[in-house]
Design a protein around this nucleic acid. Structure first.
Lengths: 209, 209
DNA sequence: ACCTGAACACCGTTCAAGT
DNA sequence: ACCTGAACACCGTTCAAGT
């Protein structure tokens, strides 16, 4: 099989693929080189540092976010962007710990950020208010996706009967015993939609738009 | 100087110290052993895997969260717990990427979780609703703390004039150009408090309590 | 039970060398 | 300009050996 020539894009695509298939720890310069069929040092011709690789892989994923059409009503557009963030996070669950640590910085990925800011500006918020509203929306989206894709509540599963948590420690904790079974099992789609609605209503009310 | 004997607690304390002083990448079995003045393999007598070390260090931090007094009015107690999470995260900013990936699992750290669930139950929510409300609160807290302590918006600083982002890519993005200067600079204390109020009001309204 | 050194299969990255 | 192998200073972890 003839190898396509090395390029930044090919490297980032292969890196995302590696993360999807084998997890975040598999994203090493050496394993990536092996996946690409080149020597470890060849990657350094195109990507100066491991950190740049990580940023590139994150951008590779966020570039897949689909923009809402320009004439979409502002708050529908905002909802669409937030849904797209979650959709892409679900497409690459292993990448979630990285995708939640920095905004898109690639030219293509910046378009989705631009379109979120455009929606908020069109809704009547000034630049400072737009920044506030975007931070609140991002907090919600990042926190929500961290919880669901990171398996945050997994250690509390089975009412604490799992390997991670022994039943004894829950003895003096009646609330934990009755609530834990409900924490890790839930309708995350419905909760995401209703949480998003609540948050957007709150933003609109607090800015009077 | 005589070294105190090795123990799980001493190891976790030294690990948290290492993270605080030198960052998350410095938390390796070998550097931790050096900090403790023992051979690398000595740690394995008390901690079977690196992953257990990480969990222990996270619990070491979350154990510092102070419980609200039991008779605190439910929603004040809930606010207090969320503030404590953020306070401890600020105490150990380098730990934020780890603290946002799993709930406390240590016996001591579970008390803070118990007290949050207790507040929600006392407020009149049933166990299933309590789980929902706790997830929403956690989404907000985790997302907010990720944004502020992770320096999420740093790559967008200076209106895009930083090293991470070249000005050219912002040419066709007028919203980004006008909003970016407001994204990375903000009154995070005030925004946290108002965001928390909005979220708690929304929970109360949606559950009718 | 607790601690250790040597060894193994990995890392990211520098450097000198090739085309 | 692009790719490479050898080398360096690291990792986590197994194993056999010590107390």
């Amino acid at each position: 099989m003839a190898r396509p020539p090395l390029s930044r894009d090919a490297i980032f695509r292969a890196g995302l693929d590696l993360v999807d298939r084998e997890g975040i720890d598999a994203l090493t310069m050496r394993r990536l080189a092996r996946a690409l069929g080149v020597a470890p040092m060849s990657i350094y011709t195109h990507v100066p540092k491991k950190e740049d690789l990580v940023v590139g892989v994150v951008n590779e994923a966020t570039t897949k976010m689909v923009l809402p059409p320009p004439e979409t009503p502002p708050w529908d557009a905002m909802r669409a962007v937030i849904r797209e963030f979650r959709r892409v996070a679900h497409l690459h669950p292993n990448l979630v710990p990285l995708i939640t640590r920095q905004p898109p910085t690639g030219v293509d990925s910046l378009r989705i950020l631009e379109s979120a800011l455009d929606a908020l500006r069109r809704a009547g918020l000034d630049p400072a208010a737009t920044a506030r509203a975007y931070r609140i929306s991002s907090s919600f989206a990042i926190g929500f996706v961290s919880l669901e894709s990171g398996g945050y509540f997994r250690p509390l599963e089975d009412g604490g009967g799992s390997r991670r948590l022994d039943l004894e420690s829950l003895q003096g904790m009646p609330r934990l015993m009755e609530v834990a079974p409900h924490l890790a099992t839930w309708d995350s789609d419905a909760e995401f939609e209703s949480g998003m609605d609540v948050m957007i209503d709150a933003i609109r009310r607090s800015f009077g738009v």
